[in-house]
Amino acid sequence: MNEPLGSKTAAMEGGGLYNRHSGLQHANLQTALPLLEEAARLIGQSSAGLAVIADYGASQGRNSMGPMGRAIDLMRQQDEDRPVQVFHADLPSNDFTSLFTLLADDPASYLSGRTAVYPTAIGRSYFEAILPPSSVDLGWSSNALHWMSESPVEVDDHAWAVFSASQAARDAVDDVLARDWLQFLTARNLELRPGGRLICQFMGRGESELGFEWMAGLFWQSIVELREEGHLTEAETQRMTAPSAGRSLAQVAAPLQSGEVPGLEIDHLSLFESPDPFWDEYQGTGDARRLGEQWSCMMRAANGPNFAAGLDVSRDRNALLDRLTDRLAARIAAAPQRSRSWNVLLSVTKSK
């Protein structure tokens, strides 16, 4: 049974947990850094005065430090004293405390060794305009745009509706992906100044496989096991449908090629196979238990709040997520393999 939902998407798990368990996301964004560096270098050569960088989907900030620091330095190549303002945007429920603690105290902070850099946080959805028109020089978004603004449907045969046997459910996912993507691009088209650049890296989908089938399947099996043991009801299990899915290159390109966002021009669009840093480590250590812990903790940090939102209010959510994380870790350790998924790289320019 599939039911319309429309519940809003939650931020990553707080308390700095996502910062501690986002190694996969850190590995993913490395492929996008050359595009970010090229954009920052060109902006530094073609503009002066206050430079504005927008970090869309910053979460708790760990994976923003390196990219922001590199962009700041390249935008200052013509003027080492050029002031730079960095806006970190995420949902109101985001753990901004961890972000600002990291900025203030961590040696990896992009404030370390740099002056005239001004970080700011915005607790609003990036599916709307959140900065003034023509104010942004450089936009950056990594590991975020596969999250939908809401979960369009509940399914009873998987934890991700995009993997459901129901064609209607999969169509509902694609409808929200298309709407969200157009809204995101429309908002950025308003905010970017003429000549400004936007660099995005997020989950894609392959031609013959969507990607992430193995890990998502193990997650769902762990949920079903908890339900069968009486830790979850049928209704709770159905509500535990994640609001995320990858896009194909055709889906990414569609609104940019159709003229729906006039002024934004594609500089680069490609699909690459996502790295698996946990598997790479396992190849050297043979430690299947650690492989399971790394993957399960990452999955909890990224997906836990959205799954917990489907639980009855009487539940001890942390205890149940602990149990789910343990079951997932055990399944991974019992049959280790490399995860297979894809990421999109996109660079666009606002025409002058």
Rank of each mutant, 00 (worst) to 15 (best):
R239A: 11
D312M: 08
A308N: 10
T115F: 01
R170A: 04
G196D: 10
S22H: 07
Q251N: 06
L226A: 08
L131F: 01
L256F: 09
A48M: 03
G286H: 14
N19G: 12
S347P: 02
E191N: 08
R114L: 01
S244R: 11
I53N: 05
A329K: 02
S149N: 08
A71S: 10
V162K: 13
S208R: 12
I72C: 00
R170Y: 05
S149A: 12
L328Q: 12
S93T: 14
D326F: 02
S141P: 06
V86P: 03
T237F: 00
R205A: 12
E209T: 14
S135K: 05
G196N: 11
V313C: 00
G246Q: 11
G286S: 13
V84Y: 03
R327V: 09
R338P: 00
A216H: 13
D316E: 13
G206C: 02
S351V: 09
W295K: 03
S149G: 15
A333P: 04
G211R: 07
E234H: 09
A116F: 00
S141G: 12
E228M: 01
P255F: 05
D171E: 11
L91H: 05
A40S: 12
P152T: 05
R338K: 10
Q257I: 06
D90C: 07
H26C: 07
F212V: 07
G123I: 04
L103E: 12
A302G: 13
P336N: 04
A116N: 15
T31A: 15
G113F: 02
L182R: 12
V348D: 06
Y110I: 04
D180V: 02
E80Q: 12
T9E: 04
L192S: 10
G66E: 11
A40G: 11
S341E: 01
A245I: 13
D287E: 14
W147G: 06
F127S: 05
A329I: 05
S98R: 08
W342Y: 14
G16F: 01
P194K: 07
A308R: 11
E236M: 02
R179D: 11
F278L: 03
A58F: 02
M215A: 07
S274L: 11
E209D: 13
N189L: 07
S141W: 03
K350E: 03
P133D: 15
D105L: 06
E207G: 12
F278R: 10
A178C: 00
F127L: 15
F100N: 12
A235D: 13
N306C: 05
R20L: 14
V117I: 14
F278G: 07
E3W: 00
Q283G: 04
D79V: 04
H26S: 14
D280Q: 14
G23L: 07
A242H: 10
R323C: 07
N318P: 00
D81A: 05
P336V: 05
A11Q: 07
S244I: 09
S142H: 09
G304D: 04
R20E: 15
A104C: 08
D326R: 10
R62C: 05
V176C: 01
G259D: 12
P119H: 04
F307A: 05
R289K: 13
L311W: 02
W342R: 01
Q238R: 14
A51W: 00
S142Q: 13
W147T: 08
H21W: 06
V136M: 09
K350L: 03
R70P: 02
E265Y: 01
S347F: 03
E234L: 09
